[in-house]
Structure formats: C-alpha cells, structure tokens
Simulated assay, not measured.
Amino acid sequence: MEPINQVSSVITPLDRKNVDTDQIISKEFLKRIERTGFGRFLFYHWRFDKQGNEISDFVLNKPEYKGSQILVAQDNFGCGSSREHAPWAILDYGFRVVIAPSFADIFHNNCFKNGILPIKLTEAECDEILAKGMEKPYSVDVDLEKQTVSGEDGKVYNFNIDQYYKEMLLNGWDEIALTFKYEDKIAEYEANRIAY
C-alpha cells in the first residue's frame, strides 16, 4: 500500500446519507478478479444515465471536482453488504480520504486494509465542510500525523484514529506487511520448532 501522511485536495461533496456499497459499486461490476479497474464504475448509476452518458449535475461529473482525493459524505457511509470492492472502487477512482460522521463497521475496517483514511467528524462539522464545498470548490489539507483536517479558510477540524491503523497507514502496511516486522522472530521460531 502507498503510505498516507498528508493529502491536500479540493473536496468532493457528496451530500447523501446511508450511501451503501451497492451504490458505491453496483453488483454487475464485480466480475473482475483484480483489485484495480473498479474506479470507472464508482457511483455508476448516479454518474451515468441508461445510455452511458454522464449526468452533468452529479458531483463527480463536475469539472471543478476532477482529480479530488478527498470525498466528504453524510452519516452511515458504506452501509449494506460487506463487499471489499467498495473501497477498491473508491481508491481506484483516486480518493485517498473519506470524511463522514459515521461509517458502517465492515466498510470502515476495509478502508484501513486497502490504504484509505476514513475520518469521522461530527455531523455539524461535515455539514459545514459540505456546505463550503457545494458553494464553491473548497480545499483542505489532511494531516494524519497531527490528526487534523485544515480548510483553506483556516478552519481546523480534529479527528481521532486508532494508533494501530494510524501506524499502518503512515507506513503503507497492510496486515501481511505488518508481519514482516517480526521476520527475525518467525525465522527463529521456524529454526527451533520440532518437526513432527
């Protein structure tokens, strides 16, 4: 995984609650066996009409948000099924950070395991950021080390994160890479264990 420390970007304001994993990546696009290539299907039925044409007033199709790395949404983001394809699609599209008041537990954990920083802010803070981002393009700096989201207007929002996940994201470790920290102990155990 790519390490995350600081992410600076215009936010993409997705002012919706209860965004479920089928809306994030619809079931008909789950045929790939790789983790890549899902970004083009992110929010597909919101982004495109039945003929495959972009729906111009959907936020991801607006030119001012192209290249954004920070998605801001409302309560209960990532609810629904436990499919890991949802964070794969978000990351493959280009988002490194998702900010919301709350996340579904499985989605929240899958974000950390796939190199996405999910940030929980209060509902009032998310409303404030969303309002600023919908009025005009609004840039923020996310600093994982300091655990802050700093707006271009000087407003600073603080967030909490489990130290285990913070260390994983700062170092770009997934759970397999984490075991490499103990390679010497594993090798010692393997050398001394009795074969049966």
Rank of each mutant, 00 (worst) to 15 (best):
N160W: 07
D141N: 15
T148D: 00
K113M: 13
P101S: 13
S81Q: 07
F95N: 06
D143H: 11
E167Y: 09
P87E: 04
G67D: 03
K181E: 11
D143W: 06
D20W: 05
P137C: 10
T179V: 15
V98W: 04
P63H: 09
T179A: 14
T12S: 05
L14S: 05
H85V: 12
V59R: 01
I70N: 01
R193S: 12
C111N: 05
P13N: 08
D127F: 04
E34S: 15
M168T: 11
F77N: 01
I116H: 01
L169V: 13
V7L: 06
N110Y: 11
K113C: 06
A89T: 08
E175T: 15
P137K: 05
Q51G: 09
K66M: 02
L144N: 04
F43I: 00
N158P: 11
E188Y: 11
K155T: 14
F38L: 13
H45F: 10
P63K: 08
A195L: 14
A124W: 10
L91D: 02
F95S: 06
L71C: 10
M134N: 06
L169W: 06
Q69L: 09
L30I: 13
T21M: 06
D153N: 07
I11Y: 04
S81W: 01
M168V: 08
I116L: 15
L144D: 09
E145I: 15
F112V: 09
I119M: 10
F58C: 10
S26E: 15
D49P: 04
R16I: 00
K136P: 10
T148K: 02
